[in-house]
Design a protein around this nucleic acid. Structure first.
Lengths: 211, 211
DNA sequence: TTTATAATCTAATCGCAATTAGATTAATGT
DNA sequence: ACATTAATCTAATTGCGATTAGATTATAAA
């Protein structure tokens, strides 16, 4: 009952995945370290070998989720296609990401509160400083993600392809509805993530395109 | 140190308001009964005279918030104006509601998870049953709220005023972005709730209107 | 092989936060 | 005035859940 043989080894990422799962079902505080641990057949104590504490674990979940989405969307935003095409692809990438991974998607919406709360960040020791840094970095990433949308909208306006709108607000509106998909989406519903994405694309483009 | 003189009396609604406030800042679990109590100069124990337990208190907060919004939107939806007009007014009502009361607005998005979790609902006693009923009633209300939007969209399509879209998905998209406003809105920002509402109205109507 | 390091476990701590019990005083109705 | 009810308080209780300490065994490196 100590170290497990190599084949049944549990990796950091397994834990993150398990945590994401439980998190989506129960929410941060309702989720106990034990819950997470048992999903991967470990004891709560063992988790501390992989993560400093519960907060860092949550952070890891969110970081991973956001990083994945960003990775897909960044190259699209950077391409030199017309804004409308880019926006379409970005929407699809985002929504499909969220539906294929409702786990992380929902966390993205719900668990922000837990993050903001510095409270939990550590018993007086130095964890706190590092936690805050990482958390702020996460929020940076989040802004960056939003900016990709905002800038694409701006570009569309500049290029004369889109009407004059408030890019900042429209971007927030888009992210609001797209993230929200992660909250209500059920894998067994009548529409796939792609279907839902298609509806959103049509909706957004109609709202933005000139003429 | 017992019952307070009538003028400094604390009413149920004061507690709800205080709770909403703390809730928005910290989120459900990070909020302690003591936190809420001290906002209204009571002790934690005293809260139990007004609410059965923490869950019921949260529920009361959400019920009140949703009821307010619904009260404003229902008559609009019921009127026989063209769908586009109704939708505009509904959007404005919803967003302004959320910005004037960011407290409740944010809770509406974040605290759903805590609600769904039956876990906390009571130590084996009969509270549980009643809690679940009330909570389900709340979700009903929530659906009803969403339906008001969905039906108005449908009406617009039937009347030939709107394009053919998926009312269910579009309604969810709208609510997603509108609720999200409650999350990012800062009372001291450059835009008022009304401004933001105007942008959303324009956005939605452009997306939906024919020709 | 021997040694060091990694991954686990079991068994405490340890504190906090929800909730309950019991007393106390204001209001109110009769 | 009296009795009853409402609103508070102080002082437990209680339990859970995060975190730490100290073994123990597998792997990897030398």
């Amino acid at each position: 009952m100590a170290r497990k043989p190599a084949d049944q080894a549990v990796h950091r990422d397994d834990i993150i995945a398990a945590a994401a799962d439980v998190l989506r079902e129960n929410g941060y505080d309702a989720t106990t370290m034990k819950d997470i641990a048992s999903r991967v057949n470990l004891t709560a104590a063992s988790l501390y070998h992989h993560f400093r504490n519960k907060d860092f674990l949550l952070l890891a979940v969110l970081e991973l989720g956001l990083a994945e989405a960003t990775t897909q969307i960044e190259p699209i935003a950077a391409s030199d296609a017309p804004a409308s095409d880019k926006l379409c692809q970005m929407i699809e990438a985002h929504i499909v990401n969220v539906t294929d991974n409702p786990t992380v998607g929902a966390a993205m919406v719900f668990e922000i509160k837990s993050l903001m709360n510095v409270s939990t960040a550590g018993r007086g020791n130095g964890n706190r400083k590092e936690y805050i840094e990482r958390r702020d970095a996460f929020f940076e990433l989040r802004d960056h993600f939003e900016r990709l949308f905002r800038d694409t909208i701006k570009q569309g306006i500049t290029d004369g392809e889109f009407r004059e709108v408030e890019p900042a607000i429209v971007a927030k509106a888009m992210l609001g509805s797209q993230n929200w998909v992660g909250v209500w989406y059920k894998p067994d519903g009548r529409l796939t993530g792609r279907d839902i994405a298609a509806i959103h694309m049509d909706y957004v483009l109609t709202a933005l395109k000139k003429n």
